[in-house]
Design a protein around this nucleic acid. Structure first.
Length: 596
RNA sequence: GGGGACGUAGUUCAGUUGGUUAGAACGCAUGCCUGUCACGCAUGAGGUCGCGGGUUCGAAUCCCGUCGUCCCCGCCA
């Protein structure tokens, strides 16, 4: 690594490495980039020169330029070079059809070695088998790969689409602070200690929720932001500690207007990857999603669906199942083996659904473990009510006894998991389908059995439906919220609501959540105060941008569309964050570490 | 917080029942080679078997602990 390096001087790049075609034959060009591979045939050296646009073959022939050939002997993969030479059409038989520039090559006159490079720890190729750990440690090399370049450049174009669409629709992009105050409830906050106020902390925002509502109070009418959010919770393939939302809020909102705005945005985004999305998106109430698909983010890529049903009281007594139970027809799976069914039962049980049975419809008969108790005619009638055909299987799922407020929700959720499990097992999820769906009318509250109280299902600023308002004090569990989620292929990609804009209603909601006036004031005082100064009706949505880009890029992990992501334990393997700090820094902040 | 999988050369992996000198491919180095494009041929270098402890005559292999990566549950208003 003590090669004499050349200077770029005032040389100007004339083309990118992916640009040259026959049309440029005869021109003198200057290309610059990284050496992808060197093929040294002794007295003839080929270099593939790479930049973000592609590759061009460089020929170093001593008969043309002994100097360039000498330089080429010294270069290695990932060296940074500049080449001046003539574009020549390749001789027939030496054309490379796999390369966009494969009909031409550059005959080098001058080869400038602008920088050398250590041998990279892994090859810079689209398809890599390299462990993610190594890729993240050397992220700068990983990002040189065409696939990562494409993902991040797609993200850039998506940013332009978002900004153009929102601006055209009258939305203002306004930045909100990253150093803000901790708001309890919700996710764990990341805290930033204050030097000027010892013992006090800023919190990084879980989302700019209150700021965007305040911007509505301030009369900005329509706001959006592509914004980083921070949540100190455990990671998943689709979750990072810091992630990006498209945050949107509008005054005097009509849900249908907002839906159309978002649907048109999604349509434009997916057009970037040549996906034509069908509008308007399907809509479904939460209750229906839970009954039919056992999920508040159903994957509609398979037609499998559940139905709630009631047996005759005497019958349910006999087979000892709580009412209602759930039934699902699985077309053509009447031949399911005993061990397959046993495994399903086991899965169901582990998910909290402890009553499991089935009916195999064969010809005119119905074969089932319940035949003895219920009699075959009753089972055949049950199967018929689900339109089961010969060769089908009917799955039955339930609870032995329904204890606790959330028992049937557990049953629904178990049924949803089982549905996906079967769909995957039987390969029923059609690839290449883009099933967008609005899930609406979420419950306003959900009951926390551990804490023995209600909690906000969306967040405490979500408006109840007007017609449910009087249930606030009498039956909060039955209230529906003006909240909605956007779902794509079983993945939640956005969520929002029409907010509470009246202080009196906000107070009543806090009360239903068990928040005393005092507590509410302590936590959200500034916001409650703002509500008192003429707050317009408003509402909005936040879209999970990393997930959307990942789905567009065909990646199953959002780390593939984030330039510098963190590992599952929230570490940055490249810069080795988090890291310890000097005692002086702690001292300045008035902090002291607990010794273990 | 819990469960599962993984950790051996620069990389991706193999490594039998615990056995003597830990292998392969790619990459790398050196030499030869004027039409290669996964260049070819020859030679060679390269190992804290994640780390610590234990069992054993003997440990990459068995046991305990620990660290790291990935996936899942909890968690994520």
């Amino acid at each position: 690594m003590n090669l004499k390096l050349d200077l770029l001087g005032d040389r100007q790049r004339t083309h990118y490495c992916g640009e040259l075609r026959k049309a440029q034959a005869g021109q003198t060009v200057f290309l610059a980039g990284w050496v992808d591979v060197r093929r040294d045939l002794g007295n003839l050296i080929f270099l593939d020169l790479r930049d973000h646009t592609g590759k061009t073959q460089i020929v170093c022939n001593p008969a043309r330029s002994a100097e360039a050939h000498d330089r080429a002997e010294e270069v290695r993969p990932e060296y940074v070079v500049g080449v001046e030479g003539e574009v020549v059409v390749r001789a027939p038989g030496t054309v490379n059809p796999q390369l966009a520039t494969g009909e031409v090559e550059v005959m080098a006159r001058t080869l400038l070695v602008l920088n050398e490079a250590k041998t990279p720890p892994f090859p810079i190729e689209d398809e890599t088998k390299t462990s993610e750990e190594t890729r993240l440690r050397y992220r700068y090399l990983d990002l040189r790969r065409g696939r990562m370049q494409r993902n991040l450049r797609l993200r850039h174009r998506a940013n332009q689409v978002v900004r153009a669409h929102m601006a055209e629709s009258g939305f203002q992009e306004i930045e909100t602070p990253f150093m803000t105050r901790s708001t309890p409830e919700g996710a764990r906050d990341f805290l930033v200690p204050s030097r000027l106020h010892p013992g006090h902390f800023y919190a990084l925002p879980q989302s700019p929720q209150l700021f965007k509502q305040i911007l509505m109070i301030s009369g900005f009418d329509r706001y959006f932001q592509i914004v980083r959010c921070f949540r100190d919770e455990d990671f998943r393939a689709d979750r990072q500690a810091e992630f990006t939302q498209i945050d949107i809020e509008m005054a005097f909102p009509q849900r249908d207007v907002l839906f159309e705005l978002i649907e048109r945005l999604i349509e434009k985004l997916f057009a970037l990857v040549d996906v034509k999305v069908g509008r308007p998106f399907r809509r479904m109430p939460y209750d229906e999603a839970m009954e039919r698909y056992g999920s508040d983010k159903p994957h509609l890529g398979t037609s499998l669906e559940w139905r709630r049903l009631h047996l005759e009281p005497a019958a349910s007594e006999k087979v000892r199942v709580a009412q209602p139970l759930k039934a699902m027809r699985v077309p053509g799976w009447g031949g399911a083996s005993r061990s397959q069914l046993d495994k399903l039962q086991e899965t169901a049980k582990s998910l909290g659904a402890d009553w499991f049975s089935y009916i195999k419809v064969t010809g005119s008969e119905a074969q089932s473990p319940l035949a003895k108790e219920l009699g075959e005619p009753a089972l055949a009638a049950l199967a018929a009510s689900l339109e089961a055909q010969p060769g089908d299987l009917v799955l039955l799922l339930g609870l032995k006894s329904a204890g606790g407020r959330n028992a049937f929700r557990t049953l629904d959720e178990a049924s949803g998991e089982l549905r996906l499990d079967i769909a995957r097992k039987l390969d029923l999820l059609k690839p290449g389908a883009w099933n967008f769906l609005w899930v609406m009318d979420f419950p306003m509250f959900e009951y926390d059995e551990k804490e023995n109280r209600f909690g906000a299902m969306h967040h405490p600023f979500t408006s109840p439906r007007d017609e449910d308002m009087e249930k606030l004090e009498t039956d909060p569990g039955a209230m529906k919220a003006r909240a909605y989620d956007l779902v794509l292929n079983g993945s939640e990609i956005g969520g929002g609501s029409i907010r509470i804009h009246r202080q009196d209603i906000q107070r009543r909601v806090f009360k239903a959540l068990g928040l005393t006036e005092e507590k509410a004031r302590e936590r959200f005082g500034f916001f409650l105060e703002a509500l008192e100064y003429g707050t317009p009706p408003h509402g909005g949505i936040a879209l999970g941008y990393d997930r959307i880009i990942a789905l567009m890029a065909g990646e199953s992990n959002i780390r593939e569309v984030i330039a510098f992501p963190k590992t599952a334990s929230a570490a940055d393997l490249m810069c080795e964050a988090p890291a310890s700090v000097e005692p002086e820094q702690l001292d300045e902040l008035g902090l002291e570490l607990k010794s273990e």
